Simulated assay, not measured.
Amino acid sequence: MAKKRFFIALFFTLFIVTGSISYAVVGNADTELERINNELRKLEQQIEREKMETQESEQELKAVNQEIKTTEQELKQVMNKMEKTGKEIEKFEREKENLTLQLEQLSVKLEATQFRINQRREFIDARIRSMYTEGQVSYLNVLLSSNSISDFLGRMDNLVMLVKQDQRIVEQNKSDQDQVGQQKAEIDSKLAQAITLIRNTEQLKSDLKKQENEKSIMISSLSERSEAIADISEEQEETLIRLASQQAKLLKQREEASQSKKAFGTGGNFVWPFDRKYPITSNYGYRTHPITGEKESFHKGIDIGAPGGTSILAAGSGSVIIAQWMSGYGNTVIIDHGKGIWTLYAHIRMNGIKVEKGEQVKQGQKIAEVGSTGNSTGNHLHFEVRENEEAQDPVSYL
């Protein structure tokens, strides 16, 4: 009887202890799930903040690059004006040289004219001195002293010729003086105008040179700013990758805590992300960046050229951990295949993402469509494989 009571007591003791342990386990599991969910919420908020900062950086980078393009166009216009102004200066210099030569030739002509004027003046002065020495004789006395009609007429003709000769000398002197003075004034005016034009164009060229220097300095400063923003964008991309990794780990912990089995892929044996073989247009590794022109820029994946809108297929089964815009990657999908293996699909066209974060996808399932968003020069798929967040050569996984 005592033995029976002992087993009954032992049974109830075990029942109570087992029940307590079960409730403790369940309670711990609930607490762990709550903790993981809280961390996930915080992480998602941080991802959203990083996403907004990344978009702001990209917009700023786009604005800076546009300003660089505008400034380069302005610099080109300034240099074209400088070239045109330089040609005008050369033209005015040639005109100045030509006018200076004309002025020298006119000076020679002026000396010859002045010589003729002096000769005429000497002739007139000689006649005046003769008249003064011999006494003033009127034209009437000369005519009245004629011996005959024919002598009178002869003297009259001589007097008329003498008067006309004197008149021509005076008129020629005045005409020569006026002509030379007019030509000299005209050449002086043109020469002054040419000198003024040369001075003005040289000042314009100096101003344009100053503008050229200012534009060059501005382009240099903007280029440095562009590089700095690009570096920030790259850091933000890496931050998003790191946060996505943390999110993937937390999701896995939540799955384990809730004892929910998820189907993951092979972790490395992937299929081609298209239903046909499109060419690889840029391989994994170092290259010249197609947009920035940076030498020895490391390409973290491969570029596969395909028409816009072409269906992109999941290279392997797994869980979607990113399905959103990611800075230079543009619209991006990242799939976690388990065992630390991810695949990344970038430059997806607008409204081309066909899966959502947290969705389970199967190998060969359509997840997106080819586009050219983000830092892209044309329609293609940028495909990456990452192992423990480090980029690997995708070709070795396909």
Results as ranks from 00 to 15, higher is better:
299 H>W: 05
301 G>T: 15
302 I>A: 08
303 D>L: 09
303 D>Y: 07
304 I>V: 11
304 I>H: 11
305 G>H: 08
305 G>F: 04
307 P>R: 15
308 G>M: 13
309 G>D: 08
312 I>P: 02
312 I>L: 07
315 A>I: 09
316 G>L: 00
316 G>P: 07
317 S>K: 05
318 G>R: 04
318 G>T: 05
319 S>V: 14
319 S>P: 00
319 S>E: 15
319 S>A: 07
320 V>F: 08
323 A>W: 01
324 Q>A: 14
324 Q>C: 05
328 G>K: 14
329 Y>V: 02
330 G>Y: 05
332 T>S: 12
333 V>Q: 10
334 I>Q: 02
337 H>S: 06
337 H>G: 03
341 I>N: 00
342 W>F: 14
343 T>K: 03
343 T>I: 05
346 A>T: 03
347 H>F: 08
348 I>Q: 05
349 R>H: 07
350 M>R: 12
350 M>T: 15
351 N>G: 10
351 N>R: 14
352 G>T: 07
353 I>Q: 05
353 I>M: 12
354 K>F: 03
354 K>G: 00
355 V>T: 09
358 G>Q: 09
358 G>S: 10
359 E>F: 01
360 Q>R: 03
362 K>I: 00
364 G>P: 13
365 Q>H: 08
366 K>Q: 14
367 I>D: 10
367 I>H: 03
368 A>N: 14
371 G>N: 13
371 G>S: 06
373 T>Q: 10
375 N>F: 13
375 N>L: 15
378 G>W: 11
378 G>Q: 08
378 G>H: 04
379 N>Y: 15
